[in-house]
């Protein structure tokens, strides 16, 4: 197992740790006392490469890159169970969200499919003002090289009037487009 050079890690990690605290609106990883209650209650922990507690530990030791490259931050479903139960009142879900935003900026995307899904989703919102679900499902499955994975469900959905073939749009989508533009102007990576 690879040895951790703590002195180096701490020196390099300080700035990033400060960035996480800032971006998350003041969530301090140093408060975490590693009890694992977050990870014990996490419904997605079974699929993660590191438990949420381990992510907090990486942050405490300045091992930022390792945290940013983990699958965990992408698999987090933002259900807030961890934050609700944390005895130290650390908003862990917020940390996961912040790490994901930073990871994306740095080009670390451990879960490409999930990331593509969110990109497609937002593209649809920007283009149409609303989400075009059929397009989303198909687009995702084609991009994910699994065309029509949900093919068994699609005909039934059409039949039940649950999938619209045409995108839902709002008449004048200028306002929503402007919101995206304004967020970009302020440095948002959308």
């Amino acid at each position: 197992m690879e040895k951790i050079e703590l002195t180096k890690a701490l020196a390099q990690g300080q700035q990033m740790l400060a960035e996480v605290t800032h971006e998350s609106g003041g969530v301090r990883a140093s408060k975490c006392y590693q009890c694992g209650k977050c990870s014990a209650g996490c419904p997605v922990a079974f699929a993660m490469d590191k438990t949420p507690r381990e992510i907090m530990r990486l942050l405490q030791l300045g091992l930022m890159e390792e945290a940013l490259k983990s699958h965990t931050i992408w698999l987090c479903a933002s259900c807030d169970t961890c934050s609700t139960r944390c005895p130290r009142e650390v908003d862990i879900a917020k940390v996961m969200e912040t790490l994901r935003i930073i990871a994306k900026k740095k080009g670390y995307v451990a879960e490409k499919k999930l990331d593509q899904f969110h990109d497609l989703f937002l593209k649809s919102v920007e283009r149409n003002g609303r989400v075009y679900e059929m397009g989303l499902v198909l687009g995702r499955n084609i991009l994910g090289m699994q065309p029509f994975k949900d093919v068994e469900l699609s005909p039934a959905m059409l039949l039940k009037g649950k999938l619209a073939l045409l995108p839902h749009t709002i008449k004048d989508n200028g306002e929503v487009k402007k919101i995206f533009a304004n967020v970009r102007k302020r440095g948002g990576k959308v």
Binding site: H118, L122, V125, G129, V131, E175, K189
Partner: peptide
């Protein structure tokens, strides 16, 4: 318009 759902939440604050 769409609320942005978790996709916006996880992309840009």
């Amino acid at each position: 318009n769409c609320c942005g759902a978790s996709s916006a939440h996880l992309t840009d604050h």
